[in-house]
């Protein structure tokens, strides 16, 4: 279960081709698998390993370093409440306390219906809009207790489906490099001379 689908394998090959060395595609491909499955499964890591010619252990070794990769089923919505200084100064701990009450779960766990996972998070780069939270890495600013309850109601009612894709999807659009414009990635060992514009400029001197 949960190897990459054919469509995602095609996408994976497009991503791999952008890098001079295949292993550089490791993190983007683990993201892709998380987009497909909602979290990172062992089968998906095995499949990613096949695609970039490394061992599954290497994929897990790298992926387990990064906080955004989750290795167990996660709510459709991951709510991260920032608790670093600027947010703490503006009431982040009170907000987290309220969120735990509203959802009926402690930070680090998922609601019984599997819809929402609540987490403590570190600085979300929106410090002037404290306290902040992110739903599937989409910001909400200056969040009051009432705002939080409204957000949960809206998520439950499906009102934010267009704006906030399910957990695992980062961008709703991806970069596509058109084949006729791409320079193409070369393995560094295959490059022995400087790029054309430098060689020509230096030859002219």
């Amino acid at each position: 279960m949960s190897r990459l689908t054919d469509a995602n394998v095609a996408l994976a090959r497009e991503i791999i081709a952008r890098y001079p060395k295949k292993k550089s595609a490791l993190i983007p491909l683990v993201h892709l698998s998380q987009q497909q499955n909602g979290y990172v499964t062992e089968d998906a890591m095995r499949h990613v390993a096949e695609l970039i010619d490394v061992t599954p252990a290497e994929v897990y070794g790298t992926a387990s370093f990064y906080e955004m990769f989750r290795f167990e089923p996660t709510g459709k919505y991951l709510i991260n409440i920032c608790g670093t200084l600027s947010c703490a100064l503006m009431g982040a701990d009170q907000l987290m306390h309220h969120a735990e009450h509203t959802l009926g779960v402690k930070a680090g766990s998922t609601t019984p219906d599997g819809l929402i996972t609540l987490q403590h998070a570190e600085c979300q780069a929106a410090c002037t809009e404290a306290p902040t939270l992110q739903v599937n890495y989409r910001h909400r600013f200056r969040v009051t207790a009432a705002d939080f309850d409204q957000l949960v109601d809206d998520l439950r009612a499906g009102k934010l489906d267009g704006e906030i894709p399910p957990h695992g999807t980062l961008g709703r659009n991806r970069q596509h490099i058109p084949a006729d414009r791409a320079v193409g990635a070369q393995h560094p060992d295959d490059v022995t001379t400087g790029p054309a514009w430098i060689e020509i400029a230096e030859a002219a001197q």
Partner: peptide, 9 residues
């Protein structure tokens, strides 16, 4: 070429 690369936290 400019390649957009995603971090993971």
């Amino acid at each position: 070429d400019i390649v957009l690369h995603w971090g993971a936290g």
